[in-house]
Amino acid sequence: MDQRESFMSVVESPMNGVNLPGAREQGEQTIGRPLLDRKVSMRCRNVDVFYGDKQAIHDVSLDIGKHEVLAMIGPSGCGKSTFLRCLNRMNDTIDICRVEGSLQLDDEDIQDPGMDVELLRARVGMVFQKPNPFPKSIYENIAYGPRIHGLTRDKSELDEIVENALTRAGLWNEVKDRLDDVGTGLSGGQQQRLCIARAIAINPEVILMDEPCSALDPIATATVEELIDELRQRYTIVIVTHSMQQAARVSQRTAYFHMGRLVEVDRTDRIFTNPGHELTEAYITGRFG
């Protein structure tokens, strides 16, 4: 069997649970193996996602540790963003989407029909690929969430929340003298940091980021990456990224997805230097994807 045939036998082989063809016995965490060395923020077990009759996510089990950055990488269409949206039930907004399995936030079942979805999305905030500030002032972009969730008693408290959120997002000094300006008038990088500030203004536990830098220039990307590193001191962050270099820079652990399945998750340095599965190695070395 030549090198290409050997490689294709790995790519085309079925992937069922921990016994993945090509898997190597190494690393602190492979599929289905729970985190043992840190507190868990979110625990996902045997998650399947269907769009009508088509299954998009197959039996994914994954722990997300508190105050870590977990990067999810893989080829386009491999299910990264679909799985990310499970974590705050954004898939509920798609009529034909069905999510099965166990998803827990601090040991609470977020799939429970009695779960307050608005409250869940306050606890698990989201930053999207394209900056999407509200067509309101910079101040109102930040104030909106705390106001509707009843987090403030008066204007002075709201002012403090707005300043703190913008400060944590590294934007306060740039906008403090023009808080009444429309948020959509900011640069692309500033808009994305405004969206991050909007997410953290309601004091979430987890922040989901779906390719947050894909629409940004290199300078704005570097600023957001520095911000991510600072924010993990307070929040758990899960980031979907098409950039392996970005995953290597910002995350402590990396999960590799392929064709709707979680191939492996491990410390980021191990994923990029000594991956535990041949599919992961083939992707990070550029042989496919």
Rank of each mutant, 00 (worst) to 15 (best):
M15A: 08
E25W: 02
L62G: 07
A197Y: 06
G260W: 03
I239V: 15
L279M: 09
K155H: 03
V224G: 07
D269G: 02
Q192S: 08
E163P: 02
P75K: 13
G17W: 03
A220T: 03
T221M: 02
L87N: 07
E174I: 02
F128A: 14
R193F: 00
L35G: 06
V69H: 05
P75R: 13
E160D: 15
D92G: 05
A215T: 03
S156M: 06
V238Y: 14
C44M: 15
G183V: 05
Q252F: 01
S214G: 10
E226F: 01
G101I: 07
L208G: 13
L166H: 00
Q111H: 13
E225Q: 13
A247Q: 05
R270Q: 07
K136Y: 14
S61H: 03
M209Q: 07
P21V: 09
G65E: 13
I142Q: 01
T273N: 12
T221C: 12
V206F: 10
W172V: 01
T30W: 04
T241M: 06
C44W: 05
D210N: 09
R232H: 12
P21G: 09
M259N: 10
A197R: 02
L151I: 12
R153E: 14
S6T: 07
Q129K: 05
T30S: 13
L105P: 11
E264H: 04
R4G: 01
C97T: 14
S41P: 03
L20K: 13
G22V: 01
S76E: 11
G286S: 11
D92T: 13
E211R: 07
E108P: 00
V206M: 10
Q3W: 07
Y283H: 09
N141E: 05
D217M: 11
A56W: 06
L84K: 11
A255N: 05
R89K: 10
V69M: 08
S6F: 10
E281V: 00
V117M: 14
V99K: 04
M90Y: 08
D106C: 04
D181G: 02
S102V: 09
A143P: 13
Q29F: 14
D37F: 12
D107Q: 15
H149R: 10
H242C: 02
I237S: 11
G170M: 01
L84Q: 09
D116H: 11
C213K: 06
I110T: 09
V47N: 06
T285W: 07
A23K: 03
M42S: 13
T268S: 04
A215P: 09
C78N: 07
K39P: 07
L194A: 05
A201Q: 02
K54P: 02
F134H: 03
